[in-house]
Each structure stands twice: as structure tokens, then as C-alpha cells.
């Protein structure tokens, strides 16, 4: 690949053995992951799983308690200017100075980025139908998100970091945001890192994925790899049973009577042999959607060692 940034390694973000504790709560537990250049990296997990904490570490807003975080090969805490000037960030609350007019906010943001593209910013203002003379305070939530997105995009950052970009927004603004992600990666070499719990969105645009649960990394790697790692298996039994059978690789069961459906980890041995041993017959085995994998894990009490593809 002909990268426009030849001086930088192919890994844009590199996190090694990251731990974070807030009081007694373990917010992140031994996280290791890498975000390759040019990828769309989705972070999924339930509320409180540690997605925002992870993103704040990437931005340098949180100092690693143990382990290392490097962005573009630099430490975001030691060199905030070097890292942040190449990043674009959209926070979940779309927080910005309320009293500024949209035009002032853009001018304020532009002052920090030497690479700010005024022409591109004007185009975006037009396509988002923003009025530069309106105060940020009086914008609707969707317009606010658009202003935030604009100020994260217009300096054409190498990495776009979005924290829950579309929670609570209408479909049109969501489409704007996803469109921005797609345009960003269409330009060669740019990377997008975003967290979300709208899984169909993640499934549409992400190619790499990290799944967090209670601060632990359940999976990290290519989206396809993740989907291949799970199977949704329906078993039919000779007689009705009132409790799901024990199956080593199953992480979540639902069903009743003769038919039970399990979410299974492909890596844990031969499913069919296990099913036969449990006294059932496999009547259907499909690739699950991300949604189903997510729900199965959210119901999970114990945790498995993470599946990581490097």
C-alpha cells in the first residue's frame, strides 16, 4: 500500500497490557490490542464495559495505570500536541462551548490545526445545512453532532476517533456520521476508531472489531474472523427437557421443550460430537449476527480467555 505517511508504522494505535482501576472497580483489565492503519476499528460492549475508558486512554485523557498506550508510535500523555494534532475526536455528549456561534467554534477549532482545510469545512457546512451565525446552545442534538463531526473532520485527521457517535440521533444524522467514516477511509491510509452499541452499524462499516465486557477483551480481530468463531446451533432432543444440556462450548442457551438453541464457540472442539454426546441432534447451524453474539456475551457470567487475531 502506498501510504501517504511513510514515516509511521502500520500500527496506528498500540495498546499493551493496559490496566485501569477507578476506586475498587476494574474498568480495564489487561487489554492488549492494535489498530492497523487504514482499518475501521469498532469497539463494542454494553454500557459500562469500558469502551469510553479505552478511548480516553488513546486520547491521553487517562494515564495508563500499568501497561503502555502508543499512538503513531508516541505516548499521548508525554506528547499531547504531537498526537492530538493528528487526531479527530467526537465525544459522546457532543460537548462544546455553548456560548459560541457555529462560525466562531469552527474558527476556534481551526486555530489549533495548521492543516485545517477551509474549503472542505465550507463544503461540509453547506452539506450539513449549518448556519454559522447560530449559537451552539440553540442547535438541535443532530445539528450539534454535525458541528462536532465537522470540527473533528475538517483538518483531515489521520485517525478519526468517535465515541458512541450515533447514540440518540435520528437516522439522517447517523447516516451523515457513517458516511463521514466511509469517506474518511476511502482516502487512502486514514483510520477510524469508533465505539458503538448499535451493532448493525458496526457490522456495516467496521472491518476490525474489539468486544469488551466488564473491562475485559473478549475478542479482537477481523469482523469476519469473529463471526466465524461463533455458531448458532439448534439442537433437537428425543424428549422434552426443562433445562438446557451442558455443552462445553455453549455460552448462552434459549429455548424450551424439544428444541434448544445455543451460541457456541467454534474454537472449542467439535460441536457435532458434543451435541451427540449431550443426546441431541443438530437441526440447524448458522453464522450468527454480531447482535446475537453480543447479547449472548452480555448474559454471560464467567469470562473466557480472549480470542485474538494478530
Amino acid at each position: 500500500m502506498n501510504s501517504p505517511y511513510p514515516d509511521v508504522a502500520e500500527q496506528v494505535v498500540e495498546i499493551r497490557d493496559l490496566d485501569r482501576r477507578f476506586g475498587t472497580k476494574q474498568a480495564l483489565d489487561n487489554i492488549s490490542l492494535t489498530v492497523p492503519r487504514g482499518s475501521v476499528f469498532g469497539i463494542v460492549g454494553v454500557n459500562g464495559a469500558g469502551k469510553t475508558t479505552l478511548i480516553k486512554h488513546v486520547l491521553g485523557l487517562l494515564r495508563p495505570q500499568s501497561g503502555t498506550v502508543t499512538v503513531f508510535g508516541r505516548d499521548p500523555v508525554a506528547d499531547p500536541v504531537g498526537v492530538l494534532s493528528r487526531l479527530g475526536y467526537l465525544s459522546e455528549q457532543h460537548e462544546m462551548p455553548d456560548w459560541m456561534r457555529v462560525g466562531d467554534l469552527l474558527a476556534y477549532t481551526a486555530a489549533f490545526y495548521p492543516k485545517w482545510d477551509h474549503h472542505y469545512a465550507d463544503t461540509l457546512v453547506e452539506s450539513f445545512q449549518l448556519d454559522p451565525n447560530v449559537k451552539v446552545r440553540s442547535l438541535s442534538k443532530g445539528q450539534r453532532a454535525r458541528v462536532g463531526l465537522l470540527s473533528a473532520l475538517a483538518h483531515r485527521p489521520e485517525v478519526l476517533v468517535l465515541d458512541e457517535p450515533s447514540s440518540g440521533l435520528d437516522p439522517i444524522v447517523r447516516r451523515d456520521i457513517l458516511g463521514a467514516i466511509i469517506r474518511t477511509i476511502s482516502e487512502e491510509g486514514r483510520t477510524v476508531m469508533f465505539s458503538s452499541h448499535l451493532l448493525d452499524e458496526v457490522e456495516r462499516v467496521a472491518d476490525h472489531i474489539a468486544m469488551l465486557h466488564q473491562g475485559r477483551l473478549l475478542f479482537c480481530g477481523m469482523l469476519e474472523g469473529m463471526k466465524q468463531a461463533f455458531r448458532r446451533v439448534t439442537l433437537r432432543f428425543q424428549e422434552a427437557i426443562d433445562r438446557p444440556p451442558r455443552l462445553e462450548s455453549a455460552i448462552d442457551w434459549h429455548g424450551s421443550g424439544y428444541e434448544w438453541t445455543a451460541m457456541c464457540r467454534e474454537s472449542d472442539g467439535d460441536l457435532y460430537a458434543q451435541a451427540t454426546m449431550a443426546g441431541g441432534e443438530v437441526v440447524a447451524a448458522t453464522v450468527p449476527s454480531l447482535d446475537e453474539i453480543f447479547v449472548a456475551h452480555a448474559a454471560l457470567e464467567q469470562t473466557f480467555p480472549p480470542i485474538c487475531e494478530e
Binding site: 475501521v40 447516516r175 457513517l178 458516511g179 466511509i182 469517506r183 477511509i185 476511502s186 456495516r204 462499516v205 467496521a206 472491518d207
Partner: peptide, 8 residues
């Protein structure tokens, strides 16, 4: 990709 809103 832009029409379908999916990864290029």
C-alpha cells in the same frame, strides 16, 4: 460504499 453505507 457510500450508497449502501458500508465499508469500501
Amino acid at each position: 460504499a457510500e450508497q449502501l453505507v458500508i465499508n469500501p
